[in-house]
Computed example of a mutant assay.
Amino acid sequence: MIEHTSFLRVFALWAAGLGAAAQYGKMSVIFDLLPDLYPQAGAALGFLVSLVGGVGILLGVVAGLMVARIRYRRAILCALWLGAAVSAFQTLLPGFGWMLASRVVEGLSHLAIVVAAPTLIAQLSTVKDRGFTLTLWGTFFGVAFAVLTLAGRPLALAWGVPALFAAHALYMAGCALVLSATLRSLPDEGAQPPFSLSQMLRDHMAIYRSPFLSAPAAGWLFYTFSFVSILTVLPPYLPDGWRAITMAAMPLTSIAVSMTIGVALLRRLPAVRVVQTGFTLSTLSMAWLWMTPGSPLACLALAGSMGLIQGASFTAVAQLNHGPAAQAQANGAVAQMGNLGNSLGTPVMAFGLASFGGAALPLLAGGAFGMGLVAHLLLGAARRRSLSVPV
């Protein structure tokens, strides 16, 4: 067990996470510019955004298992160099088919980073600092999207879309150089089972049968289902004068609560308890929004409540699972369920709103938060039963 947290390496790994989130988000912030580049693509342009997440749905757990086998330092460095190469290729604005293929490769790079980085952060942090370091990791998506919105999109508008891809390629290469010079390999945990399809299927089933390995992912599914969909469909239901301010403040409030109140709670309570608190408060916030539609205060209360879920979920991975191999498996499941939640949330929410009107938003999102709480309660009971069984 380490005696001092390696904060410089932790921040370097978080920076790599920003690059991974940008792999997902760089197409989102320039989506309205893509029809000019690929005028014949039509509705298929959506795949340029969604393919990275689709790879995560299919291979999230596999990535966790593979990263444990090829080792964490090697995995993240290879993923960063691969991500840099893909973005450099995209600066050429290849044909639509080749661009789609590059997004699949980028999805593999993205997965390796989001599995290896939090696993390494947990190993580089003391137990008392993991609440802070893993909560910091949990902000990587929100921070990256904010940077892309404030700097990435203006860069693409001023210098063209290839300039954004080139900047991303340089950023990923810079992260790889820094981490290759500063990051040490973790101690070897011994030989992993040989890679085979049958072994992967067995490992896959073992992860989701385990109330320790699967718990963070189960909660993360319902969190991501709600978070992205709420930010996507909420704006039309807010008062005109408060709409822009509220939508800008919500992700910032979530990050701020996560890094302050969330970190303070994690020093006193188990991470799963903090996650359950976040789901409970999020459910109550949705009830508030249902009773007072469009209330900016209810929206900010909701964002703050979701911030508790955000950071504590990654801390729960390290608290429930000991050793980097188990944590990599759990992080792989989190990646898989997160991408599934991101992919399902907005279409389901949009269908509900089209069918039943504005009341569907608090009912669907509140129901998802409630199911996240129930999932954690049931898995907690399963863990207690497993620990009480005589050996």
Rank of each mutant, 00 (worst) to 15 (best):
I76G: 12
H204Q: 11
M286C: 14
L120I: 03
M337K: 06
G294R: 01
G142P: 14
F351A: 11
P251I: 11
W14E: 07
R69M: 01
R384H: 14
G352D: 02
A84F: 06
L344T: 03
L37D: 12
L353I: 15
R267L: 07
Q40L: 13
Q90V: 08
T232P: 02
T119I: 06
F145Q: 12
G372E: 12
A215P: 00
R202P: 01
E189R: 10
G174C: 14
H376Q: 15
L269A: 00
D32T: 15
G370N: 08
D129Q: 11
A15F: 11
A316Y: 01
F141P: 08
L8T: 12
V29H: 10
A22N: 13
A43L: 13
R385G: 03
A15P: 11
S50M: 10
I76Y: 09
L111K: 03
M247R: 08
F31A: 15
G380K: 01
R384K: 15
L221P: 02
L297W: 01
F47T: 09
A271I: 03
F222H: 03
G294V: 06
L34M: 14
P239V: 05
H322N: 06
G358S: 13
V178D: 09
Q40I: 04
L300M: 04
T149I: 15
L170S: 09
A382F: 02
T149L: 14
V61H: 00
